[in-house]
Design a protein around this nucleic acid. Structure first.
Lengths: 105, 105
DNA sequence: AACGTATATCGTAAATATACGATTAAAAAT
DNA sequence: ATTTTTAATCGTATATTTACGATATACGTT
């Protein structure tokens, strides 16, 4: 990318695009599903269920945390991850709003 | 990216992630909104409403076309773009399905 | 036929994303 | 106190994305 022109768009557009970005990799979709099934989950449990290296999974978790969709609580050497239902509600509403606007029915 | 591991995930996850990717830039969100307002729109009209160069807008249109969210019909030297309501319905349903799964309420 | 208009594509630069192994840090277990 | 376990971060390679100007293409107009 040359210089970013992102600031030339509306807050809403930037925010939704950012959430979409967080959802734009199948690994991250899968992580959200895993956290749904397990409710609360150690990082290692997630890694075991993913076809990716531990450091790569950690990066994906970081991206999901960046936009707030998940939360991680450090418990000793372990980290417990869970979904942020609040952030998910907001994301859901934002996508709904977009599709309501652009879908005819 | 090193080699892609995308094929290690489910079809559903890959598909949804791909749609999310198409929505992961504010310019593309804005284009969808413009097409909603104008219904059908020449490329140049879109370019005029965007803070980006013509070639850049063209690239964004290509990405939206790639995932099928918009369609472009060449009419002489011009190209008419419009939303694909069918693809939008599908995308909307796919996101709904994900959020239904991962949202508690 | 030459020119103008509209848009896609090419070439390119810079930023970001994805992936991995190695290392670090921090707490638990021995 | 040392070792082990867990997970984040660092360093790095490669791929992809974003952006632009320049060029090519294709049609309409003069």
């Amino acid at each position: 990318m040359a210089q970013s022109k992102v600031e030339m768009f509306s807050k809403d557009e930037i925010l939704l695009a950012d959430i979409a970005k967080a959802l734009s990799h199948p690994a991250r979709i899968k992580i959200l599903k895993i956290l749904t099934d397990k409710n609360v989950c150690m990082c290692g449990d997630i890694v075991d269920l993913m076809p990716l290296a531990q450091s790569t999974v950690s990066q994906h978790l970081k991206e999901l945390k960046r936009v707030g969709l998940i939360e991680g609580e450090i418990e000793g050497p372990k980290t417990c991850y869970c979904l942020s239902q609040k952030a998910l509600q907001t994301a859901r509403a934002d996508f709904s709003k977009l599709f309501s606007k652009i879908c005819k029915c």
